Amino acid sequence: MAVSSLSLSFISKPKFGVQSWASQSEPAAISAHGIPKCSINTSSTDEQKSVQSVSCKRRELVFGLGALSVNSFPISPVFAEEKPDNYEVFVDKVDGYSYYYPSDWREFDFRGHDSAFKDSHLQLQNVRLSFIPTNKTDIHDIGPMDEVVANLINNVYSAPTQVADLLNMQERNIDGRNYCTFEYVLTSPNFARAAFATIAIGNGRYYTLIVGANERRWRKYRNQLKVVADSFKVFDMI
């Protein structure tokens, strides 16, 4: 299996050239070095300013100063021939995809998703996979990846009351198919959730895998969940 990887050392400021799939929210500010800026929009309501302020404080608490560097965002060992210990493999031959999930997680129904697994005790620590029809053949056909990802976290994944922050983004090619994995945080006034998302296109479908946990557990389980995000593969349906 041929694998090549491109890790972006910076993420340009989103231009939002991609059509929105939901109501727009305030875009996350990204510095020239890929570090989310803790800035408050002066035109926001008092409630929105409060959410943005909480987001800044929590990011500094959980992630330290700025976003994680690209050097700490390596490809996991899931591309080896053998499955890592303490993981199981989910394969959907009908819909043409597979991924790893922790062995102690259990399958559950997640509305609007094709498959999902969650921690036995913490429902918010989970992985889920969804797809929609598309006439595109590659993720780059959608648009520049920085714009595509910014649109997803601001207009699709986040609710109007949440502040979305992009922390990192990585592109890679596996057996001729392009994938993009990105790390982000969604912050509400009283809650924050961090996640990895991996997107890919194949079989006339636009696939999205999301694996995440609440803010409190992210630092401890981030590397474990990164293995899940990196393991996602699309294969041609027979």
Score class of each variant (00 low, 15 high):
V156C: 07
Y184H: 15
R219S: 15
L167A: 00
Y207P: 04
I142F: 01
R177P: 06
T161H: 04
A164I: 10
I199R: 08
I210K: 05
G176M: 02
F191K: 08
V149K: 01
A150D: 12
S188N: 07
A195C: 08
T198M: 13
A159N: 14
I201L: 03
R205M: 15
V149W: 02
A150N: 14
R219H: 11
A194E: 13
A194P: 03
I132C: 03
C180T: 10
A213H: 06
A150L: 06
T137Y: 04
V185E: 06
A192Q: 12
E147H: 09
D165S: 14
R222P: 02
G176Q: 01
N214M: 06
I139R: 00
F182E: 07
F191T: 11
R222N: 10
W218H: 00
V163E: 13
A192V: 07
D141V: 03
P189R: 08
Y206A: 06
Y207A: 00
M169W: 02
L186F: 09
F191C: 02
T208C: 14
Y179H: 11
T187C: 07
W218K: 05
G143M: 12
K220L: 15
D138N: 09
S188F: 03
G143V: 13
P133R: 09
E183K: 12
Y206V: 08
Y207K: 02
H140D: 10
G202N: 13
L186W: 07
P133S: 08
R193V: 11
A213I: 08
M169Q: 13
N173G: 02
Y184P: 06
Y206Q: 09
R193P: 03
L167N: 06
K220E: 14
A213K: 03
K136S: 05
I132F: 11
T161L: 05
C180V: 09
A159E: 14
A192L: 14
N223E: 15
M169Y: 11
T137P: 04
I132S: 13
T137S: 09
M145R: 05
E147D: 15
K220I: 12
K136Y: 04
V148R: 08
I199W: 01
V156E: 04
E171G: 01
S158I: 01
A150F: 08
I153T: 07
G143H: 04
N151Q: 13
A197S: 02
R172K: 14
R205L: 10
G204C: 11
V148H: 00
P189S: 14
H140Y: 07
H140S: 08
I142R: 04
A164V: 11
R205Y: 10
E215Q: 11
L167P: 00
E215A: 15
T134F: 09
I153N: 03
V148Y: 00
N178I: 09
Y157C: 03
I210P: 04
V185H: 05
I201F: 04
K136F: 08
F191M: 12
H140F: 01
N168F: 01
